[in-house]
């Protein structure tokens, strides 16, 4: 039966290894019926963008708890654009102060989920906003 499955990537850019949230989320996405590619920790934006294209995911969820999101999140979006993959949605999560939201939205991050966001709300957001390619 033809069926477009939602494919997502959970990625951890930067050097922090706090992957509790990313891993819990990856499992939760699987249980929501998505196919989830997980990159592991310590990824460069280049690795993430290139993996996202190779895997043809609809969405990349970036998790960063080190404060480097201001540099790393926009870089991923920019690289995807350069590689002609601006249709891949990028969302972010982690320790991100509200004052950084505008610059991240401006840079093309479509949604930001911070500590305490319920997993269901993230899944809901994806189901509402992502039409598989």
């Amino acid at each position: 039966m033809p069926e477009r499955k939602i494919r997502v990537m959970v990625a951890k850019p930067g050097l922090d290894g706090h992957d509790r949230g990313a891993r819990v989320l990856a499992r939760y996405f699987r249980d929501a019926g998505f196919e989830v590619v997980y990159t592991g920790c310590h990824q460069t934006p280049e690795q993430i963008a290139s993996a996202a294209i190779q895997e043809d995911v609809d969405l990349v969820g970036l998790s960063c708890l080190s404060g480097a999101h201001r540099a790393l999140f926009p870089k991923v979006v920019q690289l995807l654009r350069e590689k002609g993959a601006s249709d891949i949605t990028v969302i972010g999560g982690g320790i991100i102060p509200e004052q950084d939201f505008p610059m991240l939205y401006e840079a093309g991050i479509k949604a930001i989920f911070t500590p305490g966001a319920s997993l269901d709300s993230i899944v809901e957001w994806i189901k509402t906003n992502i039409k598989p390619h």
Partner: peptide
């Protein structure tokens, strides 16, 4: 290091 992008002095 390129790996340090955006991380220096942050945490």
């Amino acid at each position: 290091s390129p790996k340090a992008l955006g991380e220096v002095g942050k945490c």
